[in-house]
Simulated scan of single mutants.
Amino acid sequence: MAESFDASVAFTDPEYRQAVVDLLGVIAYGEISAFERLVEDAKLAPTLEDKFALATMASAEFSHVHGLNDRIRSFGGDPFEAMAPFREAIDGFHAHTAPADWYEGLVKAYVGDGLASDFYREIAAYLDPDTRDVVLSAMDDTQHSVFVVDRVRKAIGADPRLGGRLALWGRRLMGEALTQAQRVAADRDALTALLAGGVDRPGLDLAALGRMFARLTERHSKRMAELGLDP
């Protein structure tokens, strides 16, 4: 875990400001994309109750965007300009991981979004306290997990063969999500610099970076197990 640093850095260091605007931009566009995807997935819902549950999840994703945009503005950024550089990468991720059916959509909502949430929580440790709170608030949607776990476990109980297919799907999501995260960080110098740290704030060395990805993998495996799937 990163040590805290002087919050005044948030408004006096141009490189840090750009990194935060980039980070908030990618999270905000990710939330909009998650909203759009969940609305589409709701069309595949087998019951009205399921459709309502997914619509509620979609609404929660979209509700986070306002707080993220407000924080971008507080750093002097334009939310839509901040989101624009990440559209191609995030849209590409969703194009490569379009679910084939209702259950793949549920696993993606739980495992894929969980991976993104874990990654941004890790990065939040290197932010000023106010921005960290905004990011962590946007990641807080654990109440939806009960619905997804219940539906997937019941489906696997009724058709054990489904478990093998969904396990492969979960592993594919893991690989695609990590590739996307690396691409986003590599394309934005300010984000790379944020993780590297500076003289007035902590950062990640190679060993710490390895531990972070180990934690992400461990949490992914735990989520898969919660769904009744082999990691």
Rank of each mutant, 00 (worst) to 15 (best):
G175F: 12
P46R: 02
D118E: 15
H66G: 05
E88C: 02
H144V: 04
I123D: 00
T179H: 13
A109G: 00
D50A: 14
L209R: 12
L23D: 07
E61H: 06
A214T: 15
V21A: 00
D159M: 10
G163V: 09
R151Y: 05
T131S: 02
F62Y: 14
D113R: 14
L178N: 06
T131I: 03
E226Q: 15
L68G: 03
E49R: 14
Y29R: 10
K43Q: 14
A124V: 02
M224N: 07
Q182M: 14
A45T: 01
V65Q: 11
D150W: 02
R151I: 06
G164C: 06
V9W: 09
V148W: 00
R87V: 04
A124S: 15
A58M: 03
S117A: 15
V135D: 00
A109E: 02
E40N: 07
A109F: 00
F35P: 03
D200Y: 13
H64W: 06
V152R: 03
A167G: 06
R73H: 04
R219F: 01
R121A: 11
L24V: 05
T217R: 11
P129G: 13
P231I: 07
G157Q: 11
T131K: 00
A124G: 00
T56I: 08
Y16T: 01
R183W: 06
F80G: 05
L54F: 08
D128Y: 03
A185Q: 12
V111C: 11
A207T: 14
R153T: 14
D22G: 06
E122G: 09
A84M: 11
A82S: 11
D118V: 10
T192L: 11
D13F: 00
V26S: 08
A2F: 08
E15A: 15
G198H: 06
R73D: 01
E49W: 11
H96D: 15
P99A: 00
T56Y: 04
Q18T: 12
L166I: 07
K51F: 12
V135S: 00
W169L: 04
L44H: 05
L191K: 09
G112K: 01
Q143E: 15
E3Y: 13
L229I: 05
R188C: 02
I72Q: 08
M212I: 07
L191A: 09
A116W: 11
L115E: 09
L178T: 10
N69F: 14
D128H: 10
E226C: 08
V152L: 07
A10I: 07
F35Q: 12
D133I: 02
P85C: 08
F213N: 06
R71A: 15
F119N: 04
H220Q: 13
T47N: 01
K51A: 14
K43I: 08
R161L: 14
I72D: 04
S8I: 07
A58T: 01
A109W: 00
E3M: 13
A186D: 15
G76K: 06
W102F: 15
V20F: 09
R132D: 06
Q180N: 09
A84E: 14
E3P: 03
F119H: 12
R87Q: 07
G164M: 12
P85N: 10
G203Q: 02
E104P: 01
D13L: 03
L54S: 04
R165H: 09
I156V: 15
A190W: 08
D113V: 07
L195Q: 12
G76D: 01
Y29L: 11
E104K: 01
